[in-house]
Design a protein around this nucleic acid. Structure first.
Lengths: 296, 296
DNA sequence: ATTATTAAATGGATCACCCATTCAATGGAA
DNA sequence: TTCCATTGAATGGGTGATCCATTTAATAAT
């Protein structure tokens, strides 16, 4: 259904070339890689160097079709065997490309007859993984992430005040009720889960998926720290639901100043709690466990 | 040097199983997948279902080692052949995992003796690709991205006012000079390139790599639109360098209000320019071409 | 000493299979 | 007829062997 022919422009002379003997020209001096030189007698169009690997080119082609709107979410790519042949590559290489695209959240691979590689849609959680990797690699620090979160949250509160709709406020209200239930019944970890959801709902209520994505990505790691802290110490933020209600009231009144002030002071108290014992803020506590494709 | 043993817990009966003939049991009724049932007479420990794919598990293991600090940037993984054996998987599958990690910016693969898979460090551009994919897939819209950019830029200006150091201001100053040169010599596209760099420098001057990353990711696409517009229409923003100088002056004086005002008005005029002819804001214009691993 | 050659290590790629899952088509039993 | 079990084909998941290409160090030739 889709044409993705790759003219491999490969470095290799031809697929399954007859094993050009290693030391064919005993005294050659030119260090020019023999590419396909000796093949055609006078082919003056020397192609530029090409170290690009097959799977990169494949990813690129598919992303190109996506960008051009030729491929859309829900579309199915041809079966691996067919596509590999169309592209003129081995199935293994094609799979490397498909795997990469799957991990990037572009594709979803499904087994069985009627299975195949489908263009994925609407996965807004991809940035979380990037953020985690950055942190694992030491490219960014916990401090930078926390600081960024404060600023982003500031922005989110402002936008939520401006744009939150009734449905958003209702969802937040329901979330707070669940928080109250969890508090009453002493389910501390569930309460952390509620917090995670609270911020997600707040982010969504900005009405801007880009902002929401950014917010989620800086919140995800933070909530892991909170989870680890609550999980190990057994202590939890006091008067959480109550504070949330106050905040929600300010949000409902579109009172940016109050909402911002409440959120900031809450963030500060959480930060104090986390920093109580150093080491709880260590990366390994939060990042270890649960590192799958993108659970959470 | 590193132990990453995976007990595959595989579904398959054993590597290279002796090709159990298809229709061996003519009248079997149990739909239980025969896993390794007939092998050992009474093995009561039925392992839980295992749909998890090998390459996912491998990625997970490596990320785990990373999160635990056992693997650090610069470290080298064992050669593919060795690692595959350690993990108990075929080399092909291992490569699928390595490829995914490479595309995610976690690894860098290098050929030749002394080559190998090295843990990458400090690549802050990974979020750009995510943003591009989201846009291609229609998960986010150009409008949302532009809007987010305005807000993020607002934040960046505030932080830059607070945190920019002399070196940052000097770099911005040098950038403006290059912009002037390009303007004088009519190199319009170079001027766009200068703009891209300007925003990157501004983002860096916040002193927070997370914020900078976010800023870069929302700016990258925007600059493609600008590039496409300038490239096709030949018109360019008037008095650009001059406006930049005013802005830089405000930044140097830590005058948040003025800097913010100047930036906002500039963004508005750029937006007006872009929206002049609709269609120029179409995705395809900006996303097509240059979709490599992560050029730019 | 300098330079060219060789050899080994390692990722890049191919081929030819086989296994496991899924689902539609088929066919027999109630 | 209706329903359920069986079958078989399509498709992704995975393996092992083998070769190519690049890079670097060791070695030989000048």
């Amino acid at each position: 259904m889709i044409h993705l022919i790759i003219h491999r422009m490969s470095t290799k002379s031809s697929p399954r070339a007859p094993a050009r003997p290693r030391s064919s020209s005993p005294n050659r001096r030119d260090r020019v890689p023999d590419h396909r030189a000796a093949g055609t007698p006078a082919a003056p169009t020397f192609r530029p160097i090409h170290t690009r690997r097959a799977f990169e080119e494949i990813c690129e082609r598919i992303r190109e079709q996506l960008a051009l709107g030729i491929l859309k979410p829900g579309d199915k790519l041809p079966p691996e065997r067919d596509l590999a042949q169309q592209l003129g590559v081995s199935r293994n290489v094609l799979r490397e490309a498909l795997r990469s695209l799957e991990m990037a959240g572009v594709l979803r691979l499904q087994k069985g007859v009627k299975g195949g590689a489908f263009i994925q849609e609407g996965d807004t959680s991809r940035m979380n993984g990037v953020m985690r990797d950055m942190l694992s690699l030491g490219t960014i620090s916990v401090r930078e992430l926390s600081e960024a979160r404060v600023h982003v949250l500031d922005l989110v509160v402002r936008l939520a005040c401006a744009n939150a709709r009734k449905a958003d406020l209702d969802a937040l209200e329901a979330n707070i009720r669940r928080t109250e239930d969890a508090t009453r019944e002493g389910r501390l970890l569930d309460r952390v889960e509620c917090s995670r959801e609270f911020y997600k709902l707040l982010a969504a209520s900005t009405g801007n998926k880009v902002i929401a994505m950014i917010m989620d990505s800086v919140t995800e790691i933070h909530m892991r720290f909170v989870y680890a802290k609550v999980s190990s110490s057994g202590v939890a933020m006091a008067r959480l639901a109550e504070k949330r209600r106050q905040f929600l009231a300010a949000l409902g009144e579109r009172n940016v100043a109050t909402a911002t002030r409440l959120m900031r002071s809450h963030l500060e108290s959480v930060q104090r709690m986390l920093e109580q014992d150093p080491g709880a803020m260590s990366l390994h506590v939060a990042l270890a466990e649960v590192q799958p494709g993108m659970r959470r």
